[in-house]
Structure formats: C-alpha cells, structure tokens
C-alpha cells in the first residue's frame, strides 16, 4: 500500500515535471517565434498606421486606427509611374523566367538522366562545375555582349539565358528521374515509344513534384533578384518591384513612410503566399536536396 502510494506520487511528480518542462519548452520556442516574426509584423503594422504614429509609437504592433490610404498613396508610385507597372514587370520577369527555366531544365535533365550519348559524363561534370562559378565572372562580359546587342533596358538579358535551364534545377530533376524505375521506360520502349515519347508520357507526369519545387524556388529567387535588374534595367518604366522599392526609398527624402511601408509589405505578398501554399515543397526541397539529392 505504502509502496503503491509512493509509486503514485512519483508518477505524479514526473507528470508534473513533464508538464512544466513542456510549458518551459513552449514558452521558449514561442518567445523565439515572436522575436523572429516581430520585424515582419512591425512592417505590416507600420504600413497601416496613421502617418503621425509610425515613428512616434514606433515599437507598437497595433495601429490606433487603420489607415488603408497608405496603400492607395503608395500605389501611385513615383515620377508618374504607378506600382502597377512595377508589379507587371516583376510578374513578367519572374513568370516568364520561371517558365523558361523549368521547361528547359526538365528537358536537359531527362537527356542527362536517361539518354546515353558520347561525352555525357564529361558535359555533366562541366555542368556541375559551373555551379561553382561566381556570377561576377559572367556579369561583366555578359553586360558588354548584351550592350552590343542593344538589349539593355529590355528583359531579354534577364530571360534569354534562362532558356538554357538552371544547373541546380537540372541536377535536382536528374536525381528525381533516377528514382523512377527504369522498367517503366523499357516497357514504353517495347511499345514503340521514342525517347521523346517516353519523356512526355512516362517521365514528365512522374517528375511533377520536382518541377513544382523548381518552379517555386525559381519564381521567388527571380522575384527577389536585385542585381540582374539593377544592371540591365535603367528606365524607370522597366523597373521591377525590387528596383522600384530601392528607388522609391532612395529619392533623398521619404516623406510618406506609410506609403513606403505599404509598398514594402505588398512586395512580400507573392512570396509569402507561395510560402503558405507550397510550404511543404519548399521545406522538403531544402531538406532533401540539401542532404540526399
């Protein structure tokens, strides 16, 4: 009896210890989450604050009143160019760029993964080695070439090179294709399918998850790309959102911080949306390609 009681209280203690440990744990990770997300929340809150409150009640996350005019005013843009133009440019840049990248990468990946041809291993090694190349090496001669071609101030220098695919995505898709049982190919080949037919009928449907991952990464890297547009797009009418934001906050004197924060917030919306909807792909993409490949 005594022993049983003792045992009971032990369990009680342990359970209580577990409970406190759990509380401490959640308090800890919760606090960290607050710290991590505070800057973003601050940005969103500032984009909605009345103008006189943004810097006077600077740490607050709750606007005393919601001022949606910040968004309307910010949308006007600058120099007579509204953010509609900038967002349009960014969608062309990121959308078309992603399309080019993903389609080409899939085709090239299939070639390397499933077709045997003379020099394949050599080209494959060369391709992987280009991953190491800093973009700074290519940037200057590419600029000179595109300048000669009269492509400055167009999207061509930012889009055309993407028709060659992206080595990282090619590699990722190759790994994915290697996971598809070769027997499927062989069966199709017996049915008289050409290599192209196998690609479209067998491989393409199977690698959709890899393509989605590639598309997501490609879209949001391109959306956030700054250096490329900075080098090639000089006419404000061609600015992407990233360039426009820099110019907008760099004009010397920002007087309407509400409008600035509103546009900063708005520029993050596509990226956040992608994150929310495709979180699994993103996280898996990093975790798996990061480790296994």
């Amino acid at each position: 009896m005594d022993q049983a009681l003792n045992f009971e209280s032990h369990r009680h203690q342990r359970r209580r210890a577990n409970l406190t440990r759990g509380l401490v744990y959640y308090a800890g990770v919760g606090l960290l989450a607050v710290v991590m997300l505070y800057p973003v929340a601050w940005l969103v809150a500032s984009s909605l604050k009345p103008l006189d409150e943004i810097w006077t009640n600077v740490t607050s996350l709750i606007p005393s009143a919601l001022r949606f005019e910040n968004y309307a005013e910010g949308w006007q843009g600058f120099g007579g160019i509204s953010f509609q133009i900038f967002f349009g440019n960014s969608f062309v840049h990121a959308g078309v760029g992603t399309l080019f990248t993903v389609i080409s990468s899939a085709v090239v990946a299939y070639g390397f993964a499933r077709v045997k041809f003379r020099g394949r291993d050599l080209w494959f090694s060369i391709m992987l080695m280009t991953l190491m190349l800093p973009s700074q090496i290519l940037m200057i001669p590419q600029y000179i070439i595109f300048n000669e071609l009269g492509w400055i101030n167009t999207f061509l220098p930012l889009l055309i090179p993407r028709l060659g695919g992206d080595v990282f995505f090619i590699f990722m898709i190759i790994q994915f294709i290697r996971g598809i049982p070769i027997e499927l190919d062989e069966a199709a080949m017996i049915d008289g399918c050409s290599k192209g037919g196998i690609f479209f009928r067998i491989i393409l449907p199977q690698i959709t998850p890899a393509l989605v991952t590639a598309a997501i990464f490609s879209f949001y890297w391109t959306w956030e790309d700054f250096l490329g547009p900075l080098v090639y797009l000089q006419n404000p009418n061609m600015y992407t959102v990233a360039l426009a934001l820099r110019a907008y906050t760099d004009l010397g004197s920002v007087n309407n911080w509400g409008a600035v924060f509103a546009m900063l917030t708005l520029s993050l919306v596509p990226v956040i949306l992608i994150f929310v909807f495709f979180q699994r792909y993103l996280v898996e993409g990093i975790a798996t390609t990061g480790l296994k490949g």
Binding site: V92, V96, F155, L156, L159
Partner: peptide, 15 residues
C-alpha cells in the same frame, strides 16, 4: 510555351 513567347515578344515590344 506559347504564352511565354507572347509575353516575351510583348516585353520586347514595350522595350
């Protein structure tokens, strides 16, 4: 691909 091409041509025309 067609959409992409159109967008590209459109972008080039704008530029």
């Amino acid at each position: 691909s067609v959409v992409a091409l159109l967008l590209l041509v459109g972008g080039a025309a704008l530029a």
